[in-house]
Every structure is written in C-alpha cells, then in structure tokens.
Amino acid sequence: MKKTVIILGFISAIIALILSVTPLYNLTILPLVIAFILGLVLFFISKKDLSKPKAIQYIFLLVIISLSLTIYKNVFNTPEVGNVEQLEQRDEENLEDSKEILEDIEIDEEF
C-alpha cells in the first residue's frame, strides 16, 4: 500500500512538474492535486507506522516547484503573437492577386 502510494505520488508530481514547464501549464492542476493528496495520504500512513520516509518531502518539494511555476506563468505570462512575417507576405501577395482578378469585375448595383 505504502509503496503504491509513493510510486503514484512520484509519478503525478513528476507529470505536474513536466507540464508546468511546458505551454500546457494549465493542465498542471490535475496531477498537482493528485500528488498533493497522495503526499498527505503518505504522511498519515507514515504517522501511523511511526516511520519518516524521505519520499513525502520529495513529493511535496516537486508539488511546490510546479505550483510556483504555474502561478508565476499565469500571473506574468502575457500572450504574445509569434512570427507573422510569412502571413504578412501571403497577405500582400493575396491582395495584389485579388486586385488583378477584381480588375475584370464591375460592381452591379442590383446585387
């Protein structure tokens, strides 16, 4: 039981940490909550056993790091548009091409 909780706790804490450093940081919440709950479960189990496994500290450390990263990114990251040079070029090309096509068109007031 204890081993399973440690393994699952570590897996979810590591997933949370990995997600928090990627642009998918909003998805961190779910593994973060799971890791936190498993950390607490481990804490109570070890309290009963009167043992002090290091795993609790590591799980909570990973949870704190990923939570801090997620909060930091949510607060300070302003969305920024990437390179639009190619789009602007396509835009200009399309406009020039459209002008040529539209040269033959005469606006009909009926439509």
Binding site: G82, L102, E103, I105, E106
Partner: peptide
C-alpha cells in the same frame, strides 16, 4: 480597381508564440 471601389474584409488567426 480601375472600375470600382470594393471593401476588403480580412480575418486572420495567429497562434500565440508558446
């Protein structure tokens, strides 16, 4: 154009850098 004036309606979508 040489014959008429049209209105260009343009919509563009660009994903954020991340």
């Amino acid at each position: 154009t040489s014959k008429s004036t049209l209105l260009r309606l343009k919509c563009s979508a660009t994903t954020y850098k991340k």
